[in-house]
Amino acid sequence: MKNRSNAAGMPDIASQPHTQLVGALDWVGMNEIEIPIRLAVEGDDREIQCPGRVSAFVNLDRPEVRGIHMSRLYLHLDRALAEHRLTPMALHHLLGDFLASHEDLSTRAMVRIDFEYPVRRPALSSDNSGWRVYPFSIIASLEGRQLDMEVAFQVTYSSTCPCSAALARQLIQQQFERDFSAGETVDRDAVLAWLGTEQGIMATPHSQRSSADVRVRMAPDFEAFPFIDLIDTIEDALKTPVQTAVKREDEQEFARLNGRNLMFCEDAGRRVQRALNDHPRIADFWARCRHFESLHPHNAVAIVTKGVEDGYKPIDGHPDGWH
C-alpha cells in the first residue's frame, strides 16, 4: 500500500522566495521525457503508437521565485498524450494547461516531441516493400493567444557527384580510344559487348548517402500533421531516396535514378527549396542538405530558407533539430 502522507505538511523549497540569487528565466522544464506517442495514419482511421522523447517548458517571469512546478508539466503531458492523438489542437490544449497550472509564474509555454514515424515503402521495380522510419520533431509554443507550430524531419537519399560522373565518362572514352583503333570499322556487337565488361566501365562516379534536414513552419489552421505529405515532397524533389527491400531489378532502377539525377549539394538544396516554396501548407522553412562525401573525410553542405522578412527564427532557438 502506498504511503499516503499529508503532502501539505511537507516542505516546498521551490515555492519559497530566493532572495540571494534572483532573475527571470527564459525557459525552465524538462527534456528527454520518455513517453509513448499516438499518431494517426494518414488516409484512414487507423492509429499507431511509437516511443517518443519530449521536452516541456514554461518561462519563469517572477525573478524572486525559485522554481516552477515540474510535476504539473509532467502530469499534464502524460494525461494529454495518453488520451489524445498527436494533433495541433491537442498540443494547443496541452500548452494551455501548462500555463493555467503556472498562471502566477509563466506567460509562455513550449513543448517539443521527438519520435520516428514508420512508413511502408514499395520497392522501385519489384513487387516487394519494406519499412522506413523517419525522424520527426514537433515543436509548439503558446504565448497569450499566439500559437506557433513547427515540424522538423529528416529524409535520407543518395547523391552522385556530377563532376565525378564527367571525369568517369572521360576515362571511359579514353579507354575506348585505346581498345578501338581510329579509322577502323567498329562492329556494333563488339562495342555492345565491350560496354558490358569491366574495361567498358573502368571508372565510376562517387556517390554517397545524404541527408535533407528540414524544419517547416506550418500555415495557420491546419487540423492534422501531414507527415507522409512532407516526406513525399522532399523525396519527390530529390528523386533518389534510399530503399528498403531491393532485388536486382530494384538496384538497377536505383542506379538509373542516380544517373539521371546527378547532384551537388547545391543542386539538392535548390530542389528542396523549390519544392517547399511551392507547398501551400508551409509558411516558412529552413532546410539543410548534407552529402557525406565518399571522396573526402568532410561533408558538403547547402542550407536554404524561404526568404521571408527577418529570416527564419526557430521556436526553440535551434534550426538544426539533429545536432
Rank of each mutant, 00 (worst) to 15 (best):
N6D: 15
A7I: 13
A7G: 06
A7E: 14
A8C: 06
D12R: 02
I13W: 15
S15T: 10
Q16L: 14
P17Q: 06
Q20L: 10
Q20P: 01
G23I: 02
L25K: 10
G29T: 04
E32V: 00
A40K: 14
G43V: 10
R46S: 14
R46Q: 15
G52L: 01
G52E: 00
S55V: 13
S55Y: 10
F57H: 15
F57N: 03
V58L: 11
N59R: 03
P63S: 11
E64W: 12
V65H: 09
R66T: 09
R66P: 06
I68Y: 05
H84I: 11
R85E: 12
L86S: 05
L86A: 12
T87L: 12
T87A: 07
P88K: 08
L94R: 01
S101I: 00
D104V: 13
T107G: 11
M110F: 12
V111P: 12
R112F: 03
Y117F: 11
V119T: 12
N128K: 01
N128F: 02
G130I: 10
Y134N: 03
P135L: 05
F136D: 01
I138W: 03
I138F: 03
A140P: 03
S141W: 07
L142G: 03
V151Y: 00
V151H: 05
F153T: 04
Q154G: 13
Q154C: 12
T160R: 13
P162R: 01
S164A: 13
S164H: 04
Q170Y: 00
Q170S: 02
I172T: 09
Q173A: 04
Q174C: 00
F176S: 00
D179P: 08
G183L: 04
G183P: 14
R188K: 14
A190C: 09
W194V: 06
L195M: 13
A203H: 13
T204M: 11
P205H: 01
S210T: 11
S210N: 05
V216T: 05
D232N: 10
A237H: 02
A237R: 05
K239E: 02
Q243K: 09
T244F: 03
A245F: 08
V246S: 15
K247L: 04
R248V: 11
E249S: 14
E251F: 04
A255K: 12
G259S: 03
N261P: 05
C265F: 06
C265K: 01
V272M: 05
Q273W: 04
Q273D: 08
A283V: 05
D284P: 02
R288C: 07
S294L: 09
L295Q: 07
H296C: 10
P297R: 09
P297G: 11
H298E: 07
N299P: 03
A300N: 10
V301E: 14
V308N: 13
V308C: 13
E309P: 06
D310Q: 15
D310H: 15
G311R: 12
K313G: 07
G321C: 15
